[in-house]
Structure formats: structure tokens, C-alpha cells
Simulated assay, not measured.
Amino acid sequence: MTQAVASRPNQALGFVAWLALCVATSSIGALASANARTFYADLVRPVWAPPGWVFGPVWSALFLAMAVAAWLVWRVPQPSKARSAALSLFVAQLVANALWSWLFFAWHLGGLAFAEVLLLWLLIASTLIAFWRVKPAAGLLLVPYLAWVTFASALNYTLWQLNPTILG
């Protein structure tokens, strides 16, 4: 049996594990966002703010792309410091991703959520670069995520400014 054939079950399990980690992160954020639809609808929003229904499909696609990107880096044949560092950054940005939902939707801390989303942006950008160095396709898969969080950062700031009594 060749090495590639023998590793297929492990690679499939690896993908499932990265996908499960992304789903778990999404689920933690979703717990904080249980009332997000009503909360978001009650906020004064800029004209360029998307309708609330957009966020679910966008985040679902982004989390899937993130899982694929992490899996591509994880399955690079030779373990290395670069690969380990890239995957550590990935996990760190997942933690920051989940925390933002709690800061904004559950705790209504607009300013702190804005500061945290800037940290998230830096972690995503660092992860994208680190992934690119290990496996360029993996870095490319994170470009839409970075673009969306760039947009989300501007929206977070604007919502915070437009809703000072609600978002402290």
C-alpha cells in the first residue's frame, strides 16, 4: 500500500477535526448571538449595513473556507516550525473570533468589541501570511475572511458611534 493511500483516512479525519473546531467556534459565537437578530434590528444602522439575514450564510461560507485552509496547512507532509506557528495563529484567531460575539451581542460593549475586532484582524492577517508561506492556496482561502472582518470592523465602529447608549 502506498503512503498516499494509507494516509487518506487520516487526512479525512484531519479535515473533520478542523471543520469541527471551526463549527465549535461558530457555535460559541452563536450562543452569544442568540438575540442578535432583534438586537441588530433595534440598532441605528448606517445605510450601507447589510440586512441581518446576510450574516449567517456569509459566516458559514467563511468558516468552511477557514477549515479547508487549516486542513491544507495541517496536511503538508513535513512538520515544521512554520506550519506549527501558522496553525497556532489559526487557533488564536478562532478564540478572538468567538470572543467578539460575546463582547458585541451578549455584553453590548461596542468599544471593547471594536478594539477586539482590530486584534482579530491582525491575527487573521498574520495567519493568512503564515498560511501563504506554508501552502499558498490556504492563505488565499483566508482572503475573503480578512475582507469580511475589515468590513465588520468598520460596521462595528459605526454601530458603536451611532448607538452610544446601547453599546456603551
Results as ranks from 00 to 15, higher is better:
Gly52His: 09
Ser7Glu: 15
Gln93Asn: 06
Trp100Arg: 01
Val5Glu: 02
Leu146Tyr: 12
Leu162Lys: 03
Leu128Ala: 09
Leu21Val: 15
Leu142Pro: 14
Ala70Gly: 08
Pro144Ile: 00
Leu141His: 12
Ala36Pro: 14
Cys22Tyr: 09
Leu128Gly: 05
Lys81Asn: 15
Ser153Lys: 06
Ala6Asn: 14
Ala82Pro: 00
Leu62Cys: 04
Trp121Cys: 03
Tyr157Val: 08
Ser27Trp: 15
Ala6Ile: 04
Ala41Pro: 14
Cys22Gly: 01
Ala34Glu: 13
Leu21Gly: 13
Gly14Phe: 01
Leu103Arg: 02
Ser33Trp: 08
Tyr145Lys: 07
Leu118Met: 14
Trp71Gly: 05
Met66Phe: 10
Val117Glu: 09
Leu64Glu: 08
Trp102Cys: 00
Ile124Arg: 11
Ala17Asp: 10
Phe104Leu: 05
Asn35Val: 08
Ala36Trp: 14
Gly52Trp: 13
Leu87Cys: 11
Val91Lys: 03
Trp53Ser: 13
Ala12Met: 00
Val16Ala: 12
Ala34Lys: 12
Val117Gly: 10
Val134His: 02
Asn163Val: 06
Ala98Tyr: 15
Trp100Val: 08
Val47Asn: 10
Leu146Gly: 11
Leu21Asp: 06
Leu123His: 09
Phe105Glu: 11
Arg133Ala: 06
Leu64Val: 11
Leu64Trp: 14
Leu123Thr: 00
Asn10Glu: 09
Val58Trp: 08
Val91Phe: 15
Ala130Tyr: 14
Ala138Tyr: 13
Leu31Met: 12
Val91Cys: 03
Lys135Ser: 11
Ala67Leu: 05
Ala138Gln: 08
Met1Gln: 03
Asn163Lys: 02
Ala85Leu: 04
Gln161Lys: 04
Val117Tyr: 13
Ala125Gln: 00
Leu159Ala: 04
Leu13Phe: 12
Arg45Gly: 03
Ala113Arg: 00
Trp48His: 07
Pro77Trp: 04
Gln93Met: 00
Arg83Ile: 09
Val44Phe: 11
Trp71Pro: 11
Ala65Phe: 15
Ile166Asp: 13
